[in-house]
Simulated assay, not measured.
Amino acid sequence: MTLALERPAPAAPAPARVHPRRVVIGFIMALVLLGLSIAASLLVGTREISPGTVWSALFNPNRTLTDHTVILDLRVPRTVVGLLAGLALGLAGALMQGVTRNPLADPGLLGVNAGASLFVVAGIAWFGVTSSLGYVWFAFAGAAVAATIVYLIGSLGREGATPVKLALAGTALTAAFTSLITIVLMADSEAFDRYRFWAAGSLVARGLDVALPLAPFILVGTILAIVAARMLNTLALGDDLARGLGQNLVTARIVCAVAIVLLCGSATAMAGPIVFVGLAVPHVARWITGPDYRLIIAFSAFFGPTLLVTADVLGRIIAQPGEIEAGLVVAFLGAPVLIALVRRVKLAGL
């Protein structure tokens, strides 16, 4: 008698083992750094305000005092915007690098920034939009449209939306949108003057009226990022093996794409096209956690806000009595960190 032996279905891969002590210490450091950046954002500015006054303004506010008004109306909203935008950019960068398996992926790779910028330019030049709150919805719509177009183009063909095709489609769309932006701005000097302030990437003049309407989108994007973390661990093995393990590639990429649109669109709408946070933060997280995207997503949620808020604080200090936009400072902060990581870790593939 012969026995028919059925080949067992392959089990889902276990994430690479990470030293628990390293993760715990990294998590504590992330919390401490985030707390310090928030405190610095509330304390530092062109107007010197003591820590006691800041504490009083937060927990016993008195609107008749000028210092309390500065804290409540300027520094608190600015800090909240930095935290939300940094959270969104950090998570979006981790998702982009995971779903495309490209270590250089950031919000610019899939055309998100270019789409947001094009729609903001259109809003300024053709619809007379002048306020930050007005830019928000144009930027969000542009990011969503760009990501949708990139995914549709990348899905053409027999293999569907592969990482290489998505990256190429995003690069091509970015080039096309950038050309359109240049054409519009060259024909309208007033639109150029307004656009360049938004495009620099800054937390200045961004208040709660901008942040609060976009907070629900960031919340949904964060939840989707958490859900996608396990999917990214499987996708990192390659399409063929992921499919053999039972992973629905279309579903995984759609979940990641929706999360990226929500996160990148919201962050770009709030703070402008800040690109380096989403590029550098996942690498810092990966250096601590290893390749497990469940941990990379968690750490990126802390490091993103810390980097952006810290950059904003430094921008207030180094150019007093003026300021340097956070988007410019982020590049100076993040570039050395990323160079050091590239020298220490092989980043050819994720």
Rank of each mutant, 00 (worst) to 15 (best):
A9M: 06
P15M: 06
A16L: 12
P20N: 14
R21V: 11
I25Y: 12
L31Y: 02
L34V: 14
G35N: 08
L42H: 12
T46P: 06
V54R: 04
V54C: 04
W55H: 12
W55S: 11
A57M: 05
N60T: 09
T64W: 01
L72M: 14
V81G: 07
L83E: 00
L83H: 02
G86S: 07
G86H: 01
L87V: 07
G90C: 04
G93N: 10
L95G: 00
Q97A: 12
Q97S: 12
T100W: 03
T100Y: 03
T100I: 06
P107K: 02
L110M: 09
G111Q: 01
G111K: 01
G115T: 04
V120W: 01
V129E: 12
T130L: 05
Y135V: 09
Y135A: 06
V136K: 04
W137L: 10
F138E: 12
F138W: 15
A147H: 02
G157D: 13
G160E: 14
P163C: 13
V164W: 06
V184N: 06
D193E: 11
G207Y: 08
V210I: 11
V210K: 07
A215S: 10
F217R: 08
V220L: 15
T222K: 04
I223V: 15
I226Q: 03
A228E: 11
L235N: 03
D240C: 09
L245R: 13
L245S: 12
G246W: 14
Q247L: 15
L249F: 15
T251F: 15
A252C: 14
I254D: 10
I260M: 14
I260K: 10
L263M: 05
C264S: 15
M270I: 14
V275S: 14
W287P: 00
W287G: 01
D292E: 03
Y293Q: 10
L295T: 00
I297Y: 01
S300N: 04
A301R: 02
A301Q: 04
F302V: 03
F303L: 14
F303A: 11
T306S: 10
Q320T: 07
Q320R: 07
I324C: 10
L328C: 08
V329F: 09
F332I: 12
V345L: 11
L350F: 14
